[in-house]
Design a protein around this nucleic acid. Structure first.
Lengths: 181, 181
DNA sequence: CTGTAATTTCAGTAATTACTGAAACTTATG
DNA sequence: CATAAGTTTCAGTAATTACTGAAATTACAG
């Protein structure tokens, strides 16, 4: 399989391929992305195909997919005719992109489906109950979404601070309550 | 397909089946769960099979899966010989369970894989860089995990308050800074 | 216990998704 | 503008995952 890929890197690549496939991302695309993240210099499609043992066309499709998720940047290396790809080296940025993209692709359409169904007149008790649950879901998803949008705005430092707050969350909430009063 | 399933409920069920399949959850299992969430009374396997047009055995496997995720509760209705299933009617509880389960199944193993690889001695510059990225990932995932653990502890009201804070996140952070000093 | 209703298992098959190689296309260069 | 290096497309095939029906198992009422 691998061309020149140390066991350490290979393990990591395989693991994230597996993870990807459990989260609805094609296994080989997951592997390609892990490889890009772990490598300091940009890689070209042939590098990836060689390192992972995939066909050239599979790599091409994978890269297209990753580009559509805005997870990789294409770069032309001066003098080189090939196209090179790289992942951001800040993992927080990667996470933010992933969240934003899934929001656009899955969450927003879900919210709008729910909204549509909530506009209908319930025909009976059964539909009334169902709509109540849909309303709950809509409210929850919208809240979580809003939250992630806010988080996207924070810079890395504030984000870390927020997360490091950890256990003292409820204290912060109390504090906020006292302030608001 | 459907036996007695209003168009409204059917749309919602189909949508969540689709969503499930994009997040690594079998489409039919997603549909079954949506149906359970939307229905006020507990359902038995035959109800589900009839409503969704699946084979009895498929429903059996799906329910087993949902039980292993702790997303449904089995209940025996007095006098009835069949087993009935229901979903929690609090969607926040459902979300918490989902997060916790995915943490156990995917996040924790990922952290331990990363930790293992970070213990190895880097063989060269390339592995050094790869390990740096793995360290970043580990740190980030651990922070996010810790955060979700804290959140699991909050009751529904505090959770809502926290999320409603929304735009004022950075204000809260400032506030906290001032307090800590 | 016995009989029957309900559930589970599992081998076989269907459906879906992923991957490849060959050909078409694009782009840059001499 | 001809050629060659590089990339993409896509029809065909492979691999995986999902689903079914029949048979086995379990659970329980009488």
């Amino acid at each position: 399989m691998a061309e020149h890929l140390t066991p350490m890197i290979q393990s990591c690549v395989l693991h994230f391929g597996e993870m990807g496939s459990r989260w609805g991302i094609n296994r080989t695309v997951g592997q390609m992305y892990a490889l890009l993240v772990l490598s300091e210099e940009p890689l070209c499609a042939d590098d990836i195909a060689a390192a992972l043992g995939f066909s050239r066309s599979n790599v091409s499709m994978g890269l297209k997919e990753l580009q559509s998720w805005e997870l990789v940047r294409l770069q032309h290396i001066p003098g080189e005719r090939k196209e090179f790809y790289s992942a951001p080296d800040d993992v927080w940025e990667i996470a933010k992109t992933l969240i934003e993209q899934r929001r656009k692709r899955e969450i927003d359409p879900t919210l709008s489906t729910l909204r549509g169904l909530l506009l209908e007149q319930p025909a009976n008790r059964e539909e009334e109950y169902a709509q109540d649950r849909m309303r709950d879901m809509h409210e929850m998803i919208e809240m979580l979404t809003q939250w992630t949008v806010e988080i996207q705005r924070l810079d890395q430092n504030n984000l870390r601070n927020l997360l490091k707050l950890g256990g003292s969350l409820s204290k912060v909430l109390d504090m906020k309550d006292r302030f608001m009063k």
